[in-house]
């Protein structure tokens, strides 16, 4: 057993970085599930002021496609790393970053438009729960983009390959998780009438 396995292994025989990250994701699931339930409970009680009729569903649907596609780009990044395809690795990682940044950009545009139309954090319970839920998700996507940029810089230095792709795998888990959360936020916030 090499020093690297001893360094990153656990008594379960698993890489401790992945095991630790799955534990973190479990706690994140609790965090987002709580925010989603609070949105469901309170958004329907907002009887006065602007509400979900202001939400731009076509734009958000397009943004959903972008985030889903970024997840595809992320798995293709890891697949390229496993195969030792440095060019593919860099290309798909850059695509993931660009699509993630686009998603955040559209969310900022959406917020500006909603605030201009009168839906603010303090407008009513809908505004408060909407911005809390989508804001925390957007913050997670932003952190993900920054993480991927740092990973991309390492990729440019040739630090990932068939024998060292776990850091990419862990970054991918985070990225897929924010995608997973959005998979539920999109219908619950934008499509379902509670």
């Amino acid at each position: 057993m090499t020093a690297q396995v001893e360094k990153h292994g656990t008594t379960l025989g698993l890489d401790h970085r992945k095991l630790g990250f799955w534990t973190f994701l479990a706690s994140e699931a609790v965090f987002f599930m709580t925010l989603i339930v609070v949105f469901i409970i309170y958004s329907g009680r907002a009887t006065e002021g602007p509400g979900r009729e202001l939400l731009n569903i076509p734009l958000t649907a397009f943004n959903t496609f972008v985030l889903l596609t970024s997840s595809l780009a992320m798995v293709l990044t890891i697949d390229a790393a496993r195969r030792g395809n440095q060019r593919g690795l860099k290309f798909w990682l850059l695509m993931t970053i660009l699509m993630g940044a686009f998603f955040v950009g559209v969310q900022v545009y959406e917020y500006r438009k909603l605030i201009h139309e009168g839906l603010t954090f303090t407008s009513n319970l809908f505004g408060m729960t909407f911005y809390t839920l989508t804001g925390f998700h957007g913050a997670h996507v932003t952190v993900g983009v920054l993480w991927l940029i740092a990973t991309y810089i390492k990729a440019l230095q040739g630090k990932f390959g068939p024998d060292n792709y776990i850091p990419l795998d862990v970054a991918g888990l985070y990225w897929h998780f924010v995608d997973l959360v959005w998979v539920f936020i999109f219908p619950i916030v934008y499509l379902i009438r509670w």
Partner: peptide, 22 residues
């Protein structure tokens, strides 16, 4: 051997060698 797919040798976990059509 260095870690591969997040598993140390001899574990029951399936490696990343198997993957679907993404």
């Amino acid at each position: 051997m260095a870690e591969h797919g997040g598993h140390t040798p001899g574990t029951a976990a399936v490696s990343h060698g198997a993957h679907p059509n993404y």
